[in-house]
Design a protein around this nucleic acid. Structure first.
Lengths: 154, 154
DNA sequence: GCAAATTCAATTGTGCACAACTGAATTGCA
DNA sequence: TGCAATTCAGTTGTGCACAATTGAATTTGC
């Protein structure tokens, strides 16, 4: 019996932890965050803060809701996170003049300069991953399709 | 140029959010938790609580540290989580008589009975995932190797 | 046999996630 | 034109994660 055939079976076997893809994802995601931690500590960032900075390094200013759309996070997560980034001196939060409901997030000079210090991190992470570039590409593709399907499912 | 060749490149491209496998994992993991949420709501559990129950359904009692080893979580996460499971009436926490440092976690009747209500969840999730069984197996395998490599990297 | 090292669960403090809600600003449409 | 619906950021409350520390119990070395 192949592994693939086993995973199609129902019954009590389905509840075995080590059969569950979602647990593998949950563990891998936490392991990745842990692998980033010492690298990001040098920048003074947490992983979610680093993600927000990645988006801003691509284009700024961005409103809170634009950041939320890119990252899949809501204002309940982003509002305090962005305040912490502002307290760190990496971004500035400013009410939009055209639409006063919006808060635009600008990079400070220190925030913009940080991208140079972060430039080596993706490669260091890729080295730590122990997968080939082709495997990483396939993994990203599969995870992307999975995320889309899961979002569509409810 | 293939995607695989691109991912080997350094430079500013490496900081692009949609190139990052770790963000894909982070997003997929949160999407999975969100997909579980309405199903687990019927049981009165959160996803980490469900994971702890999965371990206990395989064998019990388990000490806090045994659960922590299975799930990769420490006592700072598990102690309050297990107290909430006890408050829900699904487990009982009891000091070990042989080694009074240990706290053994037992299933209550309600906790043991819950596995029947949970038995359909893995299949429902697999359906929502929109991947073939072979893809899910490969994904689990790749994620497992990735998790091991990341843990070994620091 | 006993002191030092280790094991173990719990606590504290910080920072996400996310549901639910608030209140201000803007848009749309009758 | 005016008001109902929508958009937007922020707040509140709950529940993880995890580093660091505490204090009790046990094991190890000598």
């Amino acid at each position: 019996m192949t592994t693939s055939e086993e995973s199609r079976q129902a019954g009590p076997e389905a509840l075995r932890l080590n059969r569950q893809v979602c647990f593998a994802m949950y563990s891998a995601s936490r392991a990745a965050t842990a692998a980033y931690r010492p690298m990001l500590e040098e920048l003074g960032l947490t992983y979610p803060q680093y993600l927000a900075m990645l988006v801003l390094w691509e284009a700024e200013p961005r409103s809170v809701s634009e950041l939320g759309e890119e990252l899949g996070l809501d204002s309940g997560t982003l509002s305090p996170l962005l305040k912490r980034l502002e307290a760190l001196g990496f971004v500035q939060r400013r009410r939009s003049a055209e639409d006063e409901r919006r808060v635009e997030i600008f990079l400070t000079d220190a925030g913009a300069a940080l991208s140079a210090k972060a430039s080596g991190i993706p490669q260091r992470l890729a080295d730590a991953a122990g997968l080939t570039a082709a495997e990483l590409d396939q993994l990203r593709d599969t995870l992307g399709r999975l995320t889309n399907a899961l979002h569509a499912s409810h």
